[in-house]
Design a protein around this nucleic acid. Sequence first.
DNA 1: ACAAAAGTGTTGTTACTACACCCATGG
DNA 2: CCATGGGTGTAGTAACAACACTTTTGT
Lengths: 223, 223
Amino acid sequence: MALKPIKQEIKAAVDSAIFTVKDGKLMVLLIEMTKKPYEGFWALPGGLIEQKETTLEAAVRILEESTGVKNVYLEQLGTFDAIDRDPFARTISVAHIALVPEKDVALQIGEKYADVRWWSIEKLPELAYDHKHIAHVALDRLRAKLEYTNIVWSLLPKEFTLTNLQAVYEIILGTEIDKRNFRRKILALKLLEDTGRLQAGEANRPAKLYRFKQRKLQYIDII
Amino acid sequence: MALKPIKQEIKAAVDSAIFTVKDGKLMVLLIEMTKKPYEGFWALPGGLIEQKETTLEAAVRILEESTGVKNVYLEQLGTFDAIDRDPFARTISVAHIALVPEKDVALQIGEKYADVRWWSIEKLPELAYDHKHIAHVALDRLRAKLEYTNIVWSLLPKEFTLTNLQAVYEIILGTEIDKRNFRRKILALKLLEDTGRLQAGEANRPAKLYRFKQRKLQYIDII
DNA sequence: ACAAAAGTGTTGTTACTACACCCATGG
DNA sequence: CCATGGGTGTAGTAACAACACTTTTGT
């Protein structure tokens, strides 16, 4: 398509903002880097894409390498390509968002990293490349999408109480929600079904367990 | 970031879905290709990105080359990277959406194309590569964004009547809207201001001319 | 005077917010 | 019997949909 053939020396990478809710906080997974000039910095898990894989496949691969999880929610966030975003080479990064239920995760410290762990999005360490920017855009997208889709399912175990669900909304949005109004609204959406079972073992009245009717992305009809 | 250095042979391109409203229809700009195997096919304007430009800069450049317009609304749509999307080489395409007011455009048939023209999105010709898919995703995004942002400004001239504005909504959304409800709602958003002037020369009562207070993207508060 | 588009209000319905008490269980 | 979180209803307000006639201009 180009008028004159252009000799491109551009690399294509993926980076993933992997979120979970843990200890009452929204967390993002970061890896600690070993190479200069970013030794000691943290970064979103990522890597170059291989010749015969799509960016989504690369994101799936990298997600499994760092967390051991499969079959989680994953979507493309966007492509970040500031010319100097990577000091080593001109690299464009196709960023993704992944959402995982905390208990599914078994963190794996790859040989190329110093460390891998969850960080609260409220206090992130210094990040390599443009990853602070990517993380910020990812968080905005997550918050927005919570409002008009059913993505929360991807952060919750198969069965959960309405209080669990409300807590996830409150944590991500950073707001308090009235319990009665929340329940009326979420049930009116007909996304959930009652499992007929109760949560046992707590020192209080047992809560009903619900599940999502569909564990895949649905847009909520605002009209 | 990669464990072993990977020899990548991946090219990075941009493609743009350039929309306008013309003759009461939503149109997209296509170029007719000259090279095999896509000779005679139409495609979204695009090209490889250059070493020292960002994808957004490349999209701006290509937009100006094909339409002569500058300073129009342009946003990244997403990256399309199916492995076999381009039969010549592994190419990932960062697709963009551009919105232009029809009267600003002076189409320019570049030397590398057989033809350039507007096509109604209702009846597109056969498209090269995965451009049918990209065009479809672009249209979905445009429709969605019409609902929660003020992007319409980018399709209208500086001054316009409320009827003009309503027509653009109806054309893009493909629905009819009640005139009274539409006016009440759009004015309540406080995005418009009355210019104090009237449209003259029509064989009917002259309509007030309005303009957007801000000609840049704003999100509409749903709350 | 006629055609053509501009402009304008009301009513019924539905969704949203704010708010406080009783219930079932474990210890 | 007490502490803990689970569960429920109502009233006032705001937003929305549906609907028809009068006004101003050019010809």
